[in-house]
Amino acid sequence: MTLLSIEGVTVRRGGRTIVDGVNAELAAGQFVALIGANGAGKSSLLKAAAGLWKPDAGQVTLDGALLASLSRRTLAQRRAYLPQSPRVEWPISVERLVALGLTPRLPPFGGLDAWLEPALTQVIEACDLTAHRHQTATTLSGGELARAMLARALIGEPDILLVDEPISGLDPRHALDTVSRLQALALGSGRLVLAAIHDLTLAARYSTHILALHEGRLATFGPTAQVLTPALLRQVFQVDARISGQGLETVVHYSA
């Protein structure tokens, strides 16, 4: 069943059309890899899908309700969004950073209630941050910060997770770790995960679906095994690609 429906979404910025009439019906339990060349409109589509940017044409609905009709708080409880290279601006502790994900669930005043502590402990444990719980977030390594941000996004138990390039700048092991976590969120806990990913091999191995953008338009959307083809990569990235292996053994080779 459709959870998030992107209907003819068009985003224009500074007189340029960045996203042009994109349609896609996304359902719970899908891990959708959003692929496309630099400037293809991935980040803009994610922002529109998150309800942060109002589309210039078209609409996005969540469970059939227009995003624009939902209150900020309701929307924030239903979906989490992580921008590209998320940063923390003050040297707060990892625990505090993760707890910020509860903002839409807290009353306007007061601290963190005691009943939220177990949730905090649980998500910190699930993201392998227990050893870093009281560490200052600005001193985390790239991989640790990525996990902390993921924990921040997950603590509010959103149905939808929208992530912009979660593995850029991560070493192979941490990239693998992040992508398999995202997959587990979709397959294991039935969430919808939409993530912009440049590593085609990891996308091929872990994603359930591929949403490919080419110059702002939808190139294709469908199950990874069906739509990720050399022809698609030729169209989207202008590379000669070869896809070998299956499932977690898949490798995408390409040359210009």
Binding site: L52, R73, A76, A80, Y81, R87, E89, L97, L100, G101
Partner: peptide, 14 residues
């Protein structure tokens, strides 16, 4: 507090 995460994340938190 939410702005500790930057404007995009703060906006996404409502």
């Amino acid at each position: 507090d939410a702005l500790s995460l930057g404007e995009a994340q703060a906006a996404s938190l409502g």
